[in-house]
Design a protein around this nucleic acid. Sequence first.
DNA 1: ATAAATGCAAAGGGTTTGCACAATT
DNA 2: AATTGTGCAAACCCTTTGCATTTAT
Lengths: 162, 162
Amino acid sequence: MTEESAAHTLAAVITKLKSRNIRITPQREVILNYLITHHNHPDVETIYQGIADQLPNLSVATVYNTLKLFIDNDIVIELPSTDKDGSLHYDFFGVPHFHSICENCGKITDVFADEYASISKQVTQLTNQQTGYLVTSSHLEVYGLCPECQQKLNSENLATTN
Amino acid sequence: MTEESAAHTLAAVITKLKSRNIRITPQREVILNYLITHHNHPDVETIYQGIADQLPNLSVATVYNTLKLFIDNDIVIELPSTDKDGSLHYDFFGVPHFHSICENCGKITDVFADEYASISKQVTQLTNQQTGYLVTSSHLEVYGLCPECQQKLNSENLATTN
DNA sequence: ATAAATGCAAAGGGTTTGCACAATT
DNA sequence: AATTGTGCAAACCCTTTGCATTTAT
């Protein structure tokens, strides 16, 4: 994402929040900007460290509060903790997508596909028909082995069978 | 699920585990049986309480160990914690399905749909093409308001606007 | 026999909470 | 001015860890 479009995205989200009478504080703006410009699926600690220079007195509690606010407003989604890390991860959800998660190293990868729109729609309809839920959003995670871990595990197996 | 088919399912899963040289302990069998016969998406504490009469000396650590084993062998899946409860939930995954989660009360509801098979397949292919992951499984969660909470919130709104 | 699983209890660490103070509208 | 948000630090509690003992194969 270019700086230009990131700035535009930031402004658009802030407008959206303001229209819902949500106050825009420096903390919220910085955290939001971090999430828009970083797609590493950070946990709270990573976000905290990543904006420490901009907000020297920031509290972790504020990061948690802000993330919850963004999640409730469908701006950010929460991703499960990966094996080697008990903390939850967060992702700006401007463009709908899903995630593949490596069962070996815990890496999270974005998957953007045009097909996801129709899948979401189908799933929303199915859910509403069968359960009566009023559907707000849907999350999809795919589990497997990332290319790097496939290679690494393959090398290890070759080594141990010699 | 009838007792008959539950027993059959239990036997089938045990055979599958044995074929992978996984030891069948009383603890594992009881926990597995609990999960096959209870689809309340229990957390660890609920499982622990639910089988306390069958395994008086059971340790919570064993429940955690066993669940991890089942997850690694694609028998059980882990579900995110609901808002009012910081603990993860577990679900026997004999018949593939997805889940709807109420954003208000945290209730988790199974959604069985024939369409899910083709969705999973499609998602697996998309992921493999775009990321090179070797896909093992996929999870889908739908968020929204359950019928009960829709009604409840609607009543509250009517009350407060009077 | 022996490699693996269990139980116990303590430690760990991510997340939440309560309240005084500060800031947005 | 009034409502809302923030920072701080302690508390919470789910989960993990280490090790001695027991057990499945």
